[in-house]
Write a protein that binds this DNA or RNA. Structure first.
Lengths: 139, 139
DNA sequence: GTACTTGCAAACAGTTTGCATAGGC
DNA sequence: GCCTATGCAAACTGTTTGCAAGTAC
């Protein structure tokens, strides 16, 4: 995700309007590495913008997906999590603390095709026990 | 997924019972490379076992997950797909025909740990246009 | 003023659960 | 006979949608 003013520009250029709700959501996402779900975003936004609705959160996330400023993750079954960092990287999901942790591979370029199929996007999900939780178990 | 008699043995050993419903589900899954969703499985099973219920399909899939004979995929948003091939391989999702296609990497072993986090399982999902659909577009 | 956006509530899809009945072993 | 499995319906979760009222530009 770019800096907020740049995103606002991009939205305006794409024909989207700037609303306080959208700004509040952008502020919650900016720099966020928690990979929040829609409901986590809703709750955080509500702290600073109490009258926001769930529908607006979902609709705004769709807009941000469209302008490629947020990436939906299907790492957890039955809900989506959102990553404002759209740079190429992977994710690790800890089965104990349930955190989603960024993993930046030293090198792992997305193939442009595989078995003759054209690849536009890819996701790598790791599952297991994170370093913190593994340490806690041993102790 | 192993051969059906072996799975039946495994189920019995693990304390699960053998029912016609479970057998019918196993028969549908055996050798299936379509990565069906629960509802696709339900429909296929119904052809040969018309009185089966959705709940049974879901419960059986949970059992098969537990004995590691089926692998749930989160490649598509908002539903699970099931892969009876539990050998290590990746998946490609075509945005046009919506198929999920197996991808067997020449080499791509699962790391046992990454950034100090213990990895038990991983999934690689590719998204794009499959060879068939890309060809169709050009024509 | 003209879209586009919001917020609400209702709708929806996929999945899970409680419970009475059926059936495997 | 014991205990698990089935089937139904209801419940639940996350997400989407229709629409009237509000608002950015």
């Amino acid at each position: 995700m770019k800096k907020i003013p740049e995103i606002l520009d991009k939205l305006r250029r794409t024909g989207f309007k700037l609303t306080p709700q959208r700004l509040a959501i952008l502020e919650v996402l900016q720099g966020n590495t928690d990979h929040p779900s829609a409901s986590m975003i809703y709750q955080s936004v509500r702290d600073r913008y109490p009258m926001i609705s769930f529908a607006t959160v979902y609709k705004t996330l769709k807009v941000l997906e469209k302008v490629d400023e947020v990436r939906p993750l299907t790492i957890v079954e039955d809900k989506l999590n959102y990553d404002p960092d759209t740079s190429p990287h992977h994710h690790f999901h800890c089965r104990a603390c349930r955190r989603i942790i960024d993993v930046f591979p030293s090198e792992d370029p997305m193939p442009s095709s595989i078995d003759g199929h054209q690849v536009d996007k890819y996701q790598v999900y790791f599952y297991g026990l994170c370093a913190d939780c593994a340490g806690r178990k041993d102790a």
